[in-house]
């Protein structure tokens, strides 16, 4: 839980001028990471405020805010989605890094490429298959807040769409000869 370190910038071999496309790819990842940060901090702040006020009201005055127990139904999915996008942008998802550690350096890029392709495929198939659920959730309304459930479910579209885009950008960078930083246990584990 060391305080947030920014993801190490991708290294480049040989110090050539980076092509525009690859700079654009990194830029897009950075923008997504910032959107994740803003969403996450906002939702965390609102939930903290609502629950704290509710606890104080309940213990001090015996009343409460009815929606304090329902607000998480919409905001927690967005906090998680924001966190998932930040983690994806910084390559900080929990993985078993045994094989990359054993792979000779010159083959590592192929392994990383395979992993990124798998991530993009999986995220895209989840995104594609979620449509019936999104449609169904547009009929449901939270009882005290009066908000449609689809506002919460759409966080899945953001999270998995973000993962597809970040994965695609990583593939671009790998094909363009830029090494992504290798896994570092202090940054990738959450035990």
């Amino acid at each position: 839980m060391s305080p947030g370190q920014p993801g190490a910038p991708p290294r480049e071999k040989g110090g050539r001028q980076r092509p525009l496309l690859l700079r654009g790819a990194q830029g897009l990842v950075t923008i997504l990471e910032w959107s994740g940060k803003l969403i996450a901090v906002a939702t965390l702040g609102v939930m903290f405020g609502a629950l704290l006020v509710n606890v104080v009201l309940r213990y001090a005055f015996g009343t409460g805010i009815p929606w304090a127990y329902e607000i998480h139904a919409v905001l927690l999915p967005w906090l998680v989605a924001g966190g998932i996008v930040i983690a994806a942008a910084r390559s900080r998802n929990i993985a078993i890094s045994l094989l990359p550690d054993l792979t000779p350096a010159r083959y590592q890029r192929f392994l990383l490429l395979a992993v990124e392709i798998a991530i993009v495929t999986i995220a895209a198939s989840v995104l594609w298959s979620s449509q019936p659920i999104l449609r169904a959730s547009s009929f449901q309304t939270l009882s005290t807040l009066g908000i449609k459930q689809v506002w919460g479910y759409s966080s899945l579209v953001y999270a998995f769409g973000g993962m597809v885009v970040i994965g695609a950008m990583n593939i671009l960078q790998l094909l363009g000869g830029i090494d992504r930083p290798g896994p570092d246990p202090a940054r990738t584990s959450l035990s």
Partner: peptide
């Protein structure tokens, strides 16, 4: 209820509270 209307499950013995959200 979401699962039933999306076709993930077919039938559910549900609750009045959840149903009144729809």
């Amino acid at each position: 209820l979401t699962s039933a209307s999306a076709g993930v499950i077919q039938v559910t013995a549900n609750s009045q509270g959840a149903m009144s959200q729809i």
